[in-house]
Amino acid sequence: MAERDPTATVIIPPRCTAVPGSGTDPTQRDGHIQSLADRGRLGWQRDTDYGRRSMAETAMSRYKRILGDHPHARKPPGQQAEAAIGVAVLNRMIDAGRPNSVRVA
């Protein structure tokens, strides 16, 4: 991952048996392992904003389940239009299912 984009932040939880690497330069993974050791799992999740990743995965799962695993258009402009329409449809479905709350007192 670091070879493709050195600025990318990897938020994959290391295994409970993970140990820091033997290299002299600490990696992101080593930082995650140290954070897990210092603050615990929930502290690490707060530090890395892990909930945001989970919400993005849920949104993509919902998109794929309702609209299909892959775009049906062949060329990128058509794929972009298809994705925009799909997102608009999902947003409309979410708005239709959301209750209208009214404050009484």
Results as ranks from 00 to 15, higher is better:
62 R>I: 13
23 G>S: 11
64 K>S: 08
26 P>G: 03
59 A>E: 07
88 A>D: 07
47 D>H: 03
20 P>G: 11
42 L>E: 15
70 H>N: 06
48 T>W: 01
96 A>M: 10
25 D>H: 09
100 N>A: 13
54 S>G: 11
20 P>I: 10
49 D>T: 06
20 P>Q: 12
55 M>I: 08
77 P>K: 09
78 G>K: 03
79 Q>D: 02
102 V>K: 09
18 A>C: 09
34 Q>P: 01
56 A>M: 11
88 A>G: 10
83 A>C: 12
82 E>M: 03
26 P>K: 06
99 P>H: 12
11 I>C: 04
19 V>W: 05
92 R>G: 09
79 Q>K: 12
87 V>E: 10
54 S>L: 15
38 D>T: 07
5 D>F: 07
46 R>Y: 10
88 A>K: 05
45 Q>S: 09
38 D>F: 00
77 P>G: 08
90 L>D: 04
82 E>Y: 01
64 K>R: 15
71 P>K: 12
86 G>Q: 03
101 S>I: 14
40 G>K: 13
58 T>M: 08
23 G>H: 06
57 E>N: 13
55 M>F: 05
95 D>H: 01
81 A>P: 00
50 Y>N: 09
21 G>W: 06
37 A>F: 05
45 Q>E: 14
97 G>H: 10
21 G>A: 12
85 I>T: 14
102 V>I: 10
35 S>Q: 13
82 E>K: 03
31 G>N: 08
73 A>W: 02
42 L>S: 14
80 Q>V: 07
56 A>N: 12
32 H>D: 02
60 M>H: 11
26 P>N: 05
88 A>Q: 06
96 A>Y: 02
53 R>W: 02
71 P>Y: 08
54 S>K: 13
105 A>M: 03
10 V>Y: 02
15 R>K: 12
92 R>N: 05
40 G>L: 07
68 G>K: 02
98 R>V: 12
44 W>C: 01
12 I>R: 13
44 W>L: 01
99 P>M: 11
45 Q>I: 07
79 Q>G: 01
53 R>S: 03
82 E>R: 04
89 V>P: 00
96 A>G: 06
88 A>W: 02
91 N>H: 02
22 S>F: 01
69 D>A: 13
35 S>C: 15
1 M>I: 14
61 S>A: 14
9 T>L: 12
91 N>V: 03
54 S>H: 11
43 G>K: 10
75 K>I: 09
92 R>T: 06
51 G>L: 14
8 A>Q: 09
32 H>V: 00
45 Q>R: 15
58 T>G: 04
104 V>L: 10
3 E>F: 07
65 R>K: 10
6 P>I: 15
40 G>R: 12
43 G>N: 07
16 C>F: 04
25 D>C: 05
103 R>N: 08
102 V>D: 04
80 Q>G: 01
49 D>S: 08
